[in-house]
Each structure stands twice: as structure tokens, then as C-alpha cells.
Design a protein around this nucleic acid. Structure first.
Lengths: 174, 174
DNA sequence: TTGCAACACATGAAGTTTCATATAATATGC
DNA sequence: GCATATTATATGAAACTTCATGTGTTGCAA
């Protein structure tokens, strides 16, 4: 008798209806379909997100970029250093504010990411092909609304006292 | 003149309509609302996912658990060792197959996670309160369908040749 | 002006994750 | 039975991320 093949446990039943889990699983699944393209380009998923976000040539500060790619600021600082050494991005001081570092894509980074942007759009169309356009639009609207809570919540959290804590971060994405 | 405050760049425009990004951002935002509870309990998000998945008492193999919590197998193996040392889970050999290790929650793990399961449900209700129930049901249905692609794709990928690659993983979740 | 608070990023140490591969057990074909 | 392929997990080394804090710059009130 194989007890592991018994009906889903309470735990599995819980996570199968729990929104964060469904979001993570959907994200993981969609990402897995695109991961081979990233591997072929020699990019980690967070590097891809950085280059995709910087695409178009305007620079972002370290802090802005960290927020955009859903990473902690030290993580982004170190990643940008690595990507700069690889020639994919360029760091510049901000004339307007000496505390800030601006990050720009380089020609090399742009060349690397341009075909990936096109492939990403095609991959998204494939992933969503089974759903009516109205459902996709509604899905994206709800996801945007859910995602919009983060900046507001972060602003409220920043106003409160900071306290040391066990790690509960790393909810980042592909 | 602050060029960083110009209209959104092409890159930001792209990621703001790109499904994986919207999924990740929504996941991140919803997770951030729950993260303080996890910190208070002394749990990292991946530990929480393990305990939530194991809740109900049936064991899972290392491989099954890795798939459920969207982590690589070595990651899960090491995490389970750490959690076993902390007394939160228990490892057992599988009589049916000597290669396998089964993982069960302990009484201590159960006591830690039970209030969090209740809090997680309450948090989810709060996160979704602004949306009609029909929209929430539709959202979850689409997310489940998107998430279901992963096991099928993994099975197909496993049939193909394996090749070394730069890291393109770590699309995991809270 | 000056002192101090707040902001932005950098960095060291520690923890976590991944890659590549080793080891052990099981399945399969002959 | 035996050899080989496959499966499942463990492990070392390396890479990546986070925490806590340091350093430098700007903003603001007196």
C-alpha cells in the first residue's frame, strides 16, 4: 500500500487554493517555458529582468531598479557591479544627487536583450493562447491591482520602525 | 531637469504588460503583506511553504516536496536537513523504495504552522476583498491552468538531453 | 551657516541556492 | 542471475542573496 498516493493531504489542498501559491506556480510554469532562451543567451533570470527594464535607454537609480525587479537593494547593487563588469550595463553618478547611481544599458546589453524581448512576447502569446482575450485582459487587470499594493505598503512600512528579523524575503520572480 | 522622471521607458512599458512580470509583482505584493507574520514565527518563506504543504500529516518524498514548493532538489534536500535539525520536520526512509526519503511534519512544526494557515487564509481574503467573487474564481482558474503547464513541460524536458548552462532558475516564490 | 536627520548605495559576513557529480537503490532486458 | 540504465537523494564547491551596518550626500530646522 502506498500511502503517499492517498488523496491530497490537507496541506496540499490548502496550497492548491491559496492565491500566493497559485501565483507562484503560474509564474514558475510560464518562466520555465522561457528559461531555455535565457540559458542560451547566458543570462540569469534577474539579469534578464534588469536588461528588459532598462530597455529603451533611460537610466534608473539602483533603488528604482531594485524595486522594479523585486530584489533587495544590496542584491541589486552587487548584480549591477557584476553586469557592469560583463559590459551589459553602465553605472554613472547622478549630477542631480551625489548619493545616487544611475544604471544604463550598454550597446552590448541592448544587442543581447532585443531578440529576447521579441521572444518573450511570442512566448507570452503562446502561454495565453488557450484563453479568450477578454479573460487575459481581466487577468492582467487584477494582477496589476494586486501588484499595485506593494509600493503603497512599502511606503507605510518605511514610516514604521525597522526591526531585525528572520529572513522572510526572497519572494522574487523570473 | 530630471530625466529619470520622464514618461516610462520602453523597457518599463514592456515589463508592465508582460505576464511573468505581472505574476511576479502580484506575488511579491501579496507576499509582502504576509511576511511580517512569517518573521514573527521565525520562518523563511520557503520553510513556510514546506510546512504548509506537509500540513495534514502525510509525508512527501524529497522530490515531490521540491516540486510542490518550486525549489531545486538539492535546495530542498539541504533545507529539509536544516528544518529537521530545528525539529520542524522529520526524515524517514521509504520502506517501499530505498532510494527515497520521506518528509513529515513534527508536532512542533504543526504547532508553528497551524496559526499561520489560519492567518494566511485571512490575509488572502483581505487581499482579494476588492474583487468580486466571480472575478476571484476566474483568476484562480486561469492561474491553475497556467500552473498546470509546468509538470507537463518538465516531463517533456526530462526526455530531452541535459546540458550545462548559466543559472536561469530561481523563479521561485513565497 | 551648522548640526543633525534622512537618504542612497556599498560592503563584509553569513546564509541560501545552484551546479555538477557521487553514491546507493531499483528497474529492465538478456 | 547479471549487467546496465535509470532513479532518488546527498554533497562539495561556487555563486548568489540577505542582513546589518558603514560611508557619503542631501535636506531641513534652528
Amino acid at each position: 500500500m502506498n500511502r503517499r498516493r492517498s488523496p491530497a493531504t490537507a496541506g496540499r489542498a490548502f496550497v492548491r487554493d491559496y492565491l500566493p501559491y497559485l501565483l507562484a506556480q503560474a509564474n514558475h510554469a510560464v518562466h520555465q517555458g522561457f528559461a531555455p532562451r535565457l540559458r542560451a543567451a547566458g543570462l540569469a533570470s534577474v539579469e534578464w529582468r534588469v536588461l528588459a527594464t532598462l530597455s529603451g535607454g533611460h537610466g534608473l537609480t539602483i533603488g528604482e531598479l531594485a524595486a522594479e525587479v523585486l530584489a533587495q537593494q544590496p542584491t541589486l547593487t552587487k548584480l549591477v557591479h557584476r553586469m557592469a563588469r560583463a559590459g551589459l550595463v553602465e553605472r554613472r553618478g547622478d549630477d542631480a544627487d551625489g548619493r545616487r547611481t544611475l544604471v544604463f544599458e550598454t550597446a552590448r546589453g541592448r544587442a543581447l536583450v532585443a531578440p529576447l524581448l521579441a521572444a518573450a512576447k511570442a512566448h507570452e502569446r503562446t502561454a495565453l493562447a488557450a484563453f479568450p482575450a477578454a479573460d487575459v485582459a481581466a487577468l492582467k487587470a487584477i494582477l496589476r491591482a494586486l501588484g499595485a499594493a506593494a509600493p503603497a505598503r512599502a511606503a507605510r512600512a518605511a514610516a514604521g520602525p525597522r526591526r531585525p528579523s528572520p529572513r522572510a524575503g526572497r519572494a522574487s520572480a523570473a
